[in-house]
Write a protein that binds this DNA or RNA. Structure first.
Length: 582
RNA sequence: CGGGAUGUAGCUCAGCUUGGCUAGAGCGCUGCGUUUGGGACGCAGAAGUCGCAGGUUCAAAUCCUGUCAUCCCGACCA
C-alpha cells in the first residue's frame, strides 16, 4: 500500500480524552477513532492488525478441531428468559421492542451466544454418536457497559471469538477444554503477547474448571495473584492463600472484656479512629444469608471478605449479605454494631481472626463496641477458614513462595459450563442405552480487540508502537527519503513491487514530506522493519535496513537489499514461530 | 448510578475570576517560494452559531438555570 493512497491520520499531540498508553497510541498512530463512549471505528491500519489477529485465532481454532459458523447478533429475548439471563445480565443486555406489522417483538443484541448455540445444537444433535462437537464464531458482541473506559479495552461493542463445546461425557469436556487451553497458549504466543493463565472462579463444576488469560499490565482492570515461585496464579476473586488454620487458644494475660460507647461509629475506619486503634485490631462481623440461614462471618478489620470462599466454606448454593431485619434479629442491634459475643447465629472465622489478642468488635448493641475480646473466653470457634482476599505477602498455597498482586487485562477465558444451558433449553442427547441426558458444555472466549489493545499497551516506547511481526498492519515500511529525486522513487517503486511479489506486506511512505517527518511517523505506527532509500546512502550504493527496535540501521548494497529484507522477515518469522509451544 | 473534572477551529490550548471594540495562539489545512537524514522556513489565506436551550443585561465565550456529551475515581461487569 502507498501511504498517499490510504488513510492513516497520525497525530503529533496526545488527545486530551486518552489517559492510558494504548488508547493514546492507537489514536495517535491512526488505528482507531472514537464515535462515542465505548464505540470505536477501526481505521485501515487498526483494522489490518485486527484482521491479522483474527486470522491467527481462526487458524488455531480450526487446528484444535472447532468448526466455524456465524450466528445472528439479533436474538429473541425469549431465549434469555428461558435461561434466566435476562435478569442476570440486567442492564448490560441491550434489548428493545420492534414493531413488525401489528405485533411487537422483543429482541436483544447478543452479549454472547450460549443461548443461540445451545438452542441450535439441541435441535439438530440427538445422539451420543454425534458428540463431541465444538463450534465457534468471530462476531461482534454488544454489552451496555455502565461505564466504558480505557479506550478500546472496555467498550459496548467488541469483536469476540466465542467457541462452544458439546459433549456426552465429562471426559469429552475435559479433552476439549485441554485442547482449547493449549490453542489459547499458542494463539497468544503467535500474537507476540505475554499472557499469564490464571485460575478463575468456576461456578458449578469446580476444581480447575475455569482459566482466564491475563496480560500483565498496570492499567489492567483485573487483579491477579501470582506466586514468586511461579507455582500458582489466580484471579484475586479466586485466589487461595497458603495460610494454615490457627490454633484456637486464648492469649496469655488477656485484657478484661469491656463495653465502650462508640456513637455513630458503624464502619471499621470510624471505630478505629474513634478508639485510636489500628484496623488490624478490629474484627468485622458480616452477617450473610447462606441459602436463607443467617451466619456471622468474622474477618480482620483491614481485610476484604471473599464471598466465593465464604460460600464454599458454608457449602451453600447462594449467599448474600443479610438485610437489616435479619441483622437486627441475630444481633439485637442496627447494622454496624455486630460482634461475635452473644450473637444468635452460627459463626465462622478467617484464619487470622483468632490470632488477634484483645480485639475490638461490635457489642450487638446500638452505639457500642467491645474491647478486649478474646477467642475461647468471650466467643467460641472450632476451626477457621480462608475467607478473605489474598494479599501481597501471603504464603503461596502450592509452594514455599509468597504471593504478589499484579494487574492484568483479561484477553481470554475458558470455562467448563456443565449442563446449565442444555438443561434450561432442552439440549439433550440419547446414549447407547437410549437414555436421555443434557449435553455437557464448555465455552471459550477471546477478545480480539484486546489482543490489539494489549499489544499497544505493553509493547511501545516513547516514540510509538512496536508491533510483533505476526500482527503488524504491515511487515515492512519503505521510506523513499525524497520523492523529488527520480533515482530514489524509481528504486523505491522497484522494491515495493518486488517485496509485494515476494508475499510481504509492505507500506511505502510516498508522501512529499521531509525525512524527519517520515521517521517520526514511522516510529509512531511501529512497523517492524524499515527500509530507507535515498540520500547519502543511495549515493554510496546502499539502502538502510532497521528493525523498529534497533538503535542503528544496517547498510545493505542496493543489489542485495531485496533478498536481505526477504531473508530478515523469514528469519524473524521462524524465530517467532520457534517461541510458540508445539 | 454516586463523586470529581472538562466542553472555544481537525488536534493541543489561552481568553471566563472583574460581562464591553472585529474571539486568539501553536500544530494541522490551502496557495506560492525557499528547503530536504529525526515532526523546516517565509509570505499570503481558509476555517469557530465559544456543546445545546433558556434566562439576566443596553451588551454574554464570560453571570444564572436547565440539558447533552466526553474523561477520571467508585459501584457494576453471565
Amino acid at each position: 500500500m502507498r501511504w498517499s493512497q490510504t488513510f492513516i491520520p497520525t497525530m503529533k499531540e496526545i488527545p486530551s480524552d486518552a489517559e492510558i498508553p494504548s488508547h493514546q497510541l492507537m489514536l495517535r498512530a491512526g488505528l482507531i477513532r472514537q464515535l462515542m463512549a465505548g464505540a470505536y471505528t477501526y481505521l485501515p491500519l487498526g483494522y489490518r492488525a485486527l484482521r491479522k489477529a483474527e486470522a491467527i485465532v481462526r487458524n488455531e481454532m480450526d487446528k484444535a478441531g472447532a468448526v466455524e459458523l456465524f450466528m445472528p447478533a439479533l436474538q429473541p429475548i425469549d431465549l434469555f428468559e428461558r435461561t434466566g439471563r435476562k435478569s442476570a445480565f440486567g442492564n448490560v443486555l441491550i434489548n428493545f421492542h420492534l414493531q413488525r406489522g401489528d405485533r411487537k417483538v422483543h429482541l436483544a443484541l447478543g452479549p454472547t451466544h450460549e443461548e443461540v448455540v445451545t438452542d441450535l445444537i439441541g435441535r439438530h444433535i440427538s445422539s451420543y454418536r454425534q458428540l463431541p462437537l465444538t463450534v465457534y464464531q468471530i462476531q461482534t458482541k454488544f454489552r451496555n457497559e455502565e461505564r466504558p473506559r480505557f479506550g478500546v479495552l472496555r467498550t459496548s461493542e467488541f469483536l469476540m471469538k466465542d467457541a462452544y463445546s458439546f459433549g456426552a461425557t465429562l471426559e469429552q469436556l475435559d479433552d476439549v477444554y485441554k485442547r482449547m487451553y493449549h490453542a489459547y497458549v499458542r494463539i497468544f504466543a503467535r500474537c507476540g503477547l505475554e499472557v499469564l493463565p490464571v485460575e478463575a472462579e468456576s461456578g458449578p463444576i469446580g476444581g480447575d474448571a475455569s482459566h482466564e488469560f491475563m496480560i500483565p499490565a498496570d492499567n489492567g482492570e483485573d487483579q491477579v495473584v501470582r506466586s514468586t515461585t511461579g507455582a500458582y496464579a489466580a484471579n484475586l476473586e479466586r485466589a487461595e492463600t497458603g495460610r494454615k488454620a490457627a490454633p484456637i487458644v486464648t492469649a496469655e494475660n488477656p485484657a478484661a472484656l469491656q463495653k465502650v460507647h462508640t456513637p455513630r461509629a458503624t464502619s471499621i475506619e470510624a471505630v478505629a479512629k474513634f478508639l485510636k486503634v489500628a484496623p488490624t485490631q478490629l474484627v468485622k462481623t458480616l452477617i450473610f444469608k447462606a441459602d436463607d440461614r443467617p451466619v456471622a462471618v468474622l474477618i480482620r478489620g483491614d481485610h476484604d471478605a471473599n464471598e466465593n470462599k465464604i460460600r464454599r466454606a458454608l457449602n451453600a448454593k447462594v449467599i448474600e449479605l443479610a438485610d437489616n431485619a435479619t441483622i437486627e434479629k441475630v444481633t439485637g442491634a442496627p447494622t454496624g454494631f455486630a460482634g461475635p459475643v452473644g450473637i444468635k447465629c452460627d459463626i465462622i472465622a478467617d484464619h487470622d481472626v483468632p490470632l488477634i489478642k484483645d480485639a475490638v468488635t461490635g457489642a450487638n448493641e446500638l452505639d457500642h463496641h467491645l474491647t478486649g475480646v478474646n477467642v475461647g473466653r468471650d466467643y467460641q470457634l472450632t476451626t477457621t477458614y480462608d475467607l478473605r482476599n489474598a494479599q501481597e505477602g501471603d504464603p503461596c498455597p502450592r509452594s514455599d513462595g509468597t504471593l504478589q498482586i499484579v494487574h492484568g487485562i483479561e484477553v481470554g477465558h475458558v470455562f467448563k459450563l456443565g449442563t446449565k444451558y442444555s438443561v434450561a433449553l432442552g439440549a439433550e442427547f440419547v446414549d447407547e442405552k437410549e437414555e436421555r441426558h443434557p449435553m455437557i458444555m464448555g465455552c471459550y472466549g477471546i477478545g480480539i480487540n484486546r489482543i490489539i489493545a494489549g499489544l499497544a499497551e505493553t509493547q511501545h516506547d516513547a516514540n510509538g508502537l512496536i508491533w510483533p511481526l505476526a500482527v503488524a498492519p504491515y511487515e515492512v515500511l519503505l521510506i523513499p527519503l525524497n520523492i523529488a529525486e527520480a533515482e530514489t522513487t524509481q528504486l523505491s517503486d522497484k522494491f515495493y513491487g518486488e517485496l509485494q511479489a515476494a508475499g510481504i506486506d509492505v507500506l511505502m511512505d510516498d508522501r512529499d514530506a521531509r525525512p524527519g517527518f517520515k521517521f517520526k511517523d514511522a516510529d509512531l505506527i511501529g512497523i517492524p522493519l524499515r527500509v530507507i532509500i535515498g540520500g547519502k546512502g543511495l549515493k554510496d550504493g546502499v539502502v538502510e535496513v532497521k528493525w523498529r527496535t534497533d538503535a542503528e540501521a544496517t547498510k545493505v548494497p542496493v543489489a542485495e537489499a531485496i533478498q536481505t529484507v526477504i531473508k530478515l522477515i523469514a528469519e524473524r518469522k521462524a524465530a517467532d514461530a520457534a517461541k510458540v509451544p508445539a
